[in-house]
Simulated assay, not measured.
Amino acid sequence: MAKNGNISTSVIKRLPRYYRFLGELEKQGIERISSRELSEMMKLTASQIRQDLNCFGGFGQQGYGYHVASLRDEIGHILGVDKEFPTILIGAGNLGKAIAMHINFGTRGCRLAGIFDANPRLTGETVGSIAIRHTDEIEEFCKEEHPVIAVLCIPKANTQAIADKLVELGIKSFWNFSHYDLTIDHKGIEVENVHLGDSLLTLTYRTNQLGKAEDE
C-alpha cells in the first residue's frame, strides 16, 4: 500500500508500465531482476524505479533485486486489477465497439456489464456477448447493477450532461474518449481523458524534428 496519499501523477502513470514489463518477464520465465536490469529495459534510471516503488513501501531485497511474480502481483493489487469494478460503455459506434471487443476489461480490474447507445437501430445488436441497450435504459440498469466506471465514446457536445447524470446514478470514474476534456465538479470523481489524436500529433512532431535533423 502507499505510504501516503500524495503519490504524484507521473509515478501513478508509470505503474501500468511496470506491470506490463513484469508480465513480459514472467512469460519469459524470469524469476528475479535487479533495478538496474529493469531500468535498462524500461529506459528509466534504477534510482527512479527504486523511488517509485518506495512510494508504496518498496519490494526489493538488497543483493537479490525484485522477485518478478511477487512484484507484479503487488503492483497489480495497487492498480486494482484484482477487482471487478462493474463498468458500462456509452456509445456503440466504431470506437466503442472496438474498445468493447479488444480491451480485456477483466485483466484490468473491470467487468464490462453493459453497453448503451442512443441509436435505436443498434438496440439488441451484440458486441461480444453483451447486447447493446438504448440509453433510455441506463438509469434502470444503474439502479440494478450499480456500475462505478463509465467508458464514454460519445459526441463531444453530449459529454458533460451525460457525465453529470451518470454521477447522480453512482458512477465514480470515467474513461473518456469523447474529445471533450471532461472535468466533473463532484467530490470523489476520477476522470481519465483520452485523446488519441494528441498522441498521433506528438508522434508527428517527433517525426518532423527527425526530418529537420536530417536536413542539417
Score class of each variant (00 low, 15 high):
1 M>D: 13
4 N>G: 14
4 N>D: 15
6 N>V: 08
11 V>C: 15
11 V>W: 10
13 K>M: 11
16 P>R: 00
16 P>E: 11
17 R>P: 05
18 Y>C: 10
18 Y>V: 09
22 L>F: 09
25 L>A: 07
29 G>T: 04
30 I>E: 14
30 I>D: 07
32 R>W: 07
33 I>F: 09
34 S>V: 09
34 S>M: 01
36 R>D: 09
36 R>H: 12
38 L>S: 08
38 L>T: 08
39 S>Q: 04
41 M>H: 10
45 T>V: 14
46 A>L: 06
46 A>G: 13
46 A>S: 15
47 S>D: 15
48 Q>L: 12
52 D>Y: 06
54 N>S: 11
57 G>N: 10
62 Q>R: 05
62 Q>F: 03
63 G>V: 02
63 G>L: 02
65 G>A: 11
65 G>I: 06
68 V>P: 00
69 A>Q: 08
72 R>A: 10
74 E>F: 05
77 H>V: 06
80 G>L: 03
81 V>D: 04
81 V>S: 00
82 D>L: 05
83 K>H: 03
85 F>M: 15
90 I>Y: 04
91 G>M: 08
93 G>W: 07
93 G>E: 07
95 L>R: 12
97 K>E: 11
98 A>K: 10
99 I>N: 02
99 I>R: 00
103 I>W: 10
106 G>S: 08
107 T>W: 13
109 G>Q: 03
111 R>C: 13
112 L>N: 03
113 A>K: 07
115 I>T: 03
117 D>H: 08
118 A>C: 08
119 N>A: 13
121 R>K: 07
123 T>S: 12
124 G>W: 13
125 E>V: 13
126 T>P: 07
127 V>K: 05
133 R>T: 13
133 R>I: 12
133 R>C: 10
136 D>V: 14
138 I>F: 02
141 F>G: 04
141 F>P: 06
145 E>T: 12
146 H>A: 13
146 H>L: 09
147 P>M: 03
148 V>M: 02
151 V>Q: 01
152 L>H: 04
152 L>N: 01
153 C>Q: 00
153 C>E: 03
154 I>Q: 04
157 A>V: 05
158 N>H: 11
160 Q>T: 04
164 D>Q: 06
169 L>T: 10
176 N>T: 01
179 H>N: 15
180 Y>R: 05
180 Y>G: 01
183 T>D: 07
184 I>E: 02
186 H>K: 12
189 I>H: 01
189 I>W: 00
189 I>E: 01
192 E>T: 15
194 V>T: 02
195 H>I: 04
196 L>P: 11
197 G>R: 00
199 S>D: 10
199 S>I: 08
200 L>T: 11
201 L>K: 01
201 L>Q: 00
203 L>F: 12
203 L>G: 12
203 L>K: 11
204 T>H: 04
206 R>Q: 12
207 T>S: 13
210 L>M: 14
213 A>V: 14
214 E>C: 05
215 D>N: 12
216 E>L: 11
